[in-house]
Amino acid sequence: MSTAVASERPVNPVEPFLRTDRMPHIWCPGCGIGTTVNCFARALVESKQPLDKVAIVSGIGCTGRVAGYVKLDSFHTTHGRAIPFATGLKLANPGLSVVVYSGDGDLIAIGGNHFIHAARRNADIKVICVNNFIYGMTGGQVAPTTPVGATATTSPYGSYERPFNLPYLAESSGAVYVARWTAFHVRHIAHSMAEAFSKKGFCFIEIIAPCPTLYQRRNRLGDGLDTMKLYKQRSVIKNGASTRDLDVGLQGEIVVGKFVDIERPTLQQNMEQQLRQTLKDRFAGLGGA
């Protein structure tokens, strides 16, 4: 009897992609990170990725914990350095699809230098950045994405630094695919992730997501559900919009969409072509596994 009951237990379609033995996860109620992981699992299905050949690399922070929860080869690296780790991994093992999944503080503050250089050289990695405008894991400090005027524990009277516009930064640095969604846009997120899987080169997807515990609460923006409603009201889909115009404020419009989708040879393709052209028969290959 108990067996019959067990077999009727509804199975969440993303469960096979998760390390269920690691649940419950650490994320707060209303946090947007889990939503993006759900989208990621759907993208893996949609794009028919051979899961043994997908590797995920995270840095440090709340989003940095994603690597620990998905049932893939996963690497939880040091703060800010997921991208150079991923670059080495992909070059050494070119058959892998390598995804970097991390937060705004990790990728853009401490890891900002690696971000622009990986985009410049067009490393063949997919970078998913969950942007909650705040350092969550350490308790709500100001980030290089925090909108002007927003309060954080280290900007108690409101942030006064101009934040990065991430799609603009990614495009100017050389990314071949740039999209932004909010955690409300679950189908769009999954679709963008699947599109990125089908592309070669440095792909960047920003997902604006709530941190109800630290960002929303401190800035009187409501709880997780309120934030979803606000995202719905504030978001405007403008595919192909100029990335120059994508600043996000504490209030006001959030422009989302796919902004860049171009072709450019990857780091490895350029490396191979240059070496083959110069060395001819002496070129012995890049030695990947």
């Binding site: 350095r81 150079p84 670059t87 080495g88 991994l89 070059l91 060395l279 002496r282 070129f283 990947g288």
Partner: peptide, 26 residues
Amino acid sequence: PTVGGTFLQMEDELASSIAILGAAWG
């Protein structure tokens, strides 16, 4: 390149010292 393998000049030593760890796991 004449033996078979990869060299990458990174943007700093932080990057170099973790790119090799990614490569090792690859």
